[in-house]
Simulated assay, not measured.
Amino acid sequence: MIATLDTVELLNASDELASIILQSELFSQYIEARDRLNQDKEAQYKIERFTTLKVSHEEVQRFGKYHPDFKTVSADIRMAKRELDRDESVVQFKKAETELEDLLNELSGVLASMVSPSIKVPTGNPFFDSMSCSGGCGSGGGCSCG
């Protein structure tokens, strides 16, 4: 690949954007929340327990309600998930992670639209992503996907 002045400028601009993101308040909040979660022994125990139960649940799901432990394993995993979702370290981490993801999704959309308005960028929300056209709808442009 031959480096042109445009390519070098683009690489420099992308490095600058990455640096700005890494220095942002959202990124530092994400790192702090991640570190708190990693250091929280109780939260780590809940995560490990849920992961173990998830493996058991997947095994039971192969046979469905006919598996002898179906009700027990299903109830256990729901309870573990509830405990995990109520843990303050997990809640704070998920919140920080979602906020950072929203920022990155928004930046992706802005960058893509600067290149071409027909570039489709996933929003991170499966509901909205399924509503947008991926370019092969066959409606003849009736869905305004361009």
Results as ranks from 00 to 15, higher is better:
Met1Gly: 02
Met1Lys: 10
Ile2Trp: 07
Thr4Phe: 06
Thr4Val: 12
Thr4Asp: 12
Thr7Met: 05
Thr7Arg: 07
Glu9Gly: 09
Leu10Glu: 14
Leu10Val: 13
Leu11Pro: 02
Leu11Phe: 11
Ala13Trp: 13
Ala13Phe: 06
Asp15Gly: 11
Leu17Arg: 14
Ser19Ile: 00
Ile20Gly: 05
Ile21Gln: 09
Leu22Val: 04
Gln23His: 01
Ser24Val: 02
Glu25Gln: 07
Gln29Ser: 08
Tyr30Lys: 00
Ala33His: 08
Asp35Arg: 03
Arg36Thr: 07
Leu37Val: 04
Leu37Asp: 01
Asn38Gln: 15
Lys41Gln: 08
Lys41Leu: 11
Lys41Tyr: 08
Ala43Arg: 00
Gln44Ser: 01
Lys46Trp: 02
Ile47Asn: 02
Ile47Ser: 09
Glu48Ile: 01
Arg49Met: 11
Arg49Leu: 09
Phe50Ile: 00
Phe50Gly: 00
Leu53His: 08
Lys54Cys: 01
Lys54Gln: 11
Lys54Asp: 08
Val55Glu: 15
Val55Asp: 10
His57Asp: 15
Glu59Trp: 11
Arg62Phe: 11
Phe63Pro: 00
His67Leu: 01
His67Gly: 06
Pro68Arg: 07
Asp69Ile: 04
Phe70Arg: 01
Thr72Ser: 12
Thr72Tyr: 09
Ser74Asp: 11
Ala75Val: 06
Ala75Gln: 15
Asp76Glu: 10
Ile77Gln: 01
Ile77His: 02
Ile77Tyr: 02
Arg78Asp: 14
Met79His: 11
Ala80Gln: 09
Ala80Met: 04
Ala80Gly: 01
Lys81Gly: 02
Lys81Asp: 10
Arg82Asn: 12
Glu83Ile: 14
Glu83His: 12
Glu83Met: 15
Leu84Gly: 05
Asp85Thr: 03
Arg86Tyr: 14
Arg86Asn: 13
Glu88Tyr: 07
Ser89Met: 06
Val91Thr: 02
Gln92Met: 11
Lys94Trp: 12
Ala96His: 00
Glu97Lys: 08
Thr98Pro: 00
Thr98Tyr: 06
Thr98Leu: 11
Glu99Tyr: 00
Glu99His: 00
Leu100Thr: 08
Leu100Pro: 01
Leu100Val: 03
Asp102Trp: 03
Leu103Gln: 02
Leu104Phe: 05
Glu106Met: 11
Glu106Cys: 09
Glu106Ile: 12
Leu107Tyr: 07
Gly109Gln: 13
Gly109His: 06
Gly109Thr: 00
Leu111Asp: 12
Ala112Gln: 06
Ala112Gly: 09
Met114Tyr: 08
Met114Ser: 15
Val115Gly: 10
Val115Trp: 11
Val115Asp: 13
Val115Glu: 13
Ser116Ala: 14
Ile119Asp: 00
Lys120Asp: 02
Lys120Ser: 03
Val121Asp: 01
Val121Ser: 04
Pro122Glu: 12
Pro122Lys: 14
Pro122Thr: 07
Asn125Ser: 12
Asn125Ala: 04
Pro126Cys: 04
Phe127Lys: 04
Phe127Leu: 12
Ser130Ile: 07
Ser130His: 06
Met131Gly: 06
Ser132Ala: 14
Ser132Cys: 12
Cys133Thr: 11
Cys133Trp: 14
Ser134Trp: 06
Ser134Arg: 10
Ser134Gln: 12
Ser134Asp: 03
Gly135Val: 05
Cys137Pro: 04
Gly138Met: 03
Ser139Ala: 13
Gly141Asp: 06
Gly141Pro: 02
Cys143Ser: 00
Cys143Pro: 15
Cys143Gly: 06
Ser144Lys: 07
Ser144Cys: 09
Cys145Glu: 03
Cys145Ser: 10
